[in-house]
Computed example of a mutant assay.
Amino acid sequence: MKHIVVLGLGKVGTLAGELLHGAGFDVTGIDMRAAPSDLPFITKTCDLSSPSSFEADLAKPDAVLSCLPYHLNTSVATVAHAAGIHYFDLTEDVPTTRAIMAMSSDSKGLMAPQCGLAPGFVGIVGADLIAQFSDCRACKMRVGALPQNPTGLMGYSFNWSPEGVVNEYLNDCEVLEDGQIKSVSPMEWIEKLYIDGTELEAFTTSGGLGTMCETYLGRVPNMDYKTMRYPGHVGLMNFFFHELLMRDRRREAGEILVNAKPPVEDDIVYVHVSAEGLINERLARREFVRGYKPIEVAGKRRTAIAWTTASSVVGIIEMVRDGGLPNSGFLKQEDVPLAGFLATTTGSSYEDYGAF
């Protein structure tokens, strides 16, 4: 794997292209708008909402990374599957992932969705913790991408795709409870937790577990994923979406929220993963708790959500290229070894820049 096409050159896509270039890949970036002229890789423009417009661009490369909104990924994966090349994306959308999984049954290349932060890195960490137990009774995964200096009652800024946030706030959530796979409502199961003295609330959101419920069914009886926010956020979001019925107007809801809470540069990504069970026949608990802040990457200061997301997928792509992961079929994030991921040029950032 040498030549990779990156579709979508927003903050994450642009940084992913730069990291891939720095890791030795030949990169072509494609977006609907003209890209900055100072990027170290080739760029093109085309209508990414139409698969026919980029089909020819996926005929010759070895892989494609989609950094597009989730609803475009199935079409990209279909083109990649037909071309016989590797496919990677960042989606949290469950129906999209299931469609890509179905394609992988006869794919010539690797089909690897959900390679971002959550799902993605958080699942890699969760699997590593579970493996430390002879009998794991529970695994809980929590991620929050937040402003360092929150303002207002909501305490939030939309540094991530509004479409993705609205999607995960409204779609049902898969969990393992008492040994059974269950579907539960989003923005429920509210809990309080603290990271380095900062009070946070966590609540169910969709997609963060990826394929882990199916993988650990019969092995880990209780598992769930929750999003972390500052206290009071989930109550306001439930009011906005359900009492004001904005759940029926998703696109407009995203526009309203971003207009009210635009992105900030000083963000922080909290990761809190824990597992409990038996180690050497004694009850124990293991935790992975980190706070990731903006850092300088490829000569520019990058937000925490941008570099953690881009680093996750690029680290996985490095592992596939170098033989550390399969090169065909379907990749589950829980099958990615944490030690191998952290040993990659890009994935090592998670080890180097995590506080706490």
Rank of each mutant, 00 (worst) to 15 (best):
R285A: 14
P262T: 09
P113C: 07
S349W: 12
V76N: 02
E18V: 02
S52D: 14
M111W: 08
R282F: 00
L72G: 01
T28H: 09
A127D: 06
V336P: 03
N327S: 15
S206E: 07
T204C: 08
A145P: 00
P40K: 05
M228F: 00
A275L: 01
S274L: 07
K44E: 13
G120A: 09
G144L: 07
Y353R: 07
N171A: 13
L170R: 05
M246G: 02
G126I: 00
T28P: 02
V143P: 05
P40F: 02
Y270S: 00
W189T: 01
P263Y: 11
V184H: 05
T97A: 14
K60Y: 08
M228C: 13
L20V: 10
Y216D: 00
A59E: 15
N222D: 08
K293M: 07
A59I: 08
T45G: 06
K192M: 10
E255C: 02
E201A: 04
V264T: 13
A343R: 07
P147L: 02
A202Q: 07
G235L: 09
I124C: 01
P263S: 04
D322R: 03
V320H: 06
L7Q: 08
P337A: 10
S349L: 15
D57S: 14
V143T: 11
L72T: 05
E287C: 11
H233Y: 14
Q114E: 14
L9R: 11
S183H: 10
T97K: 11
R302N: 07
Y350N: 05
D26P: 00
F239T: 11
M154F: 13
N159Y: 02
Q333T: 13
R249M: 06
Y169V: 03
H242E: 12
E318M: 03
I130H: 04
L338Y: 11
P337G: 11
S37N: 14
R229D: 01
N149I: 05
P150C: 01
G235D: 14
A80F: 05
R250I: 13
L200N: 04
M1S: 11
E243H: 12
G277H: 07
T205A: 07
W307Y: 04
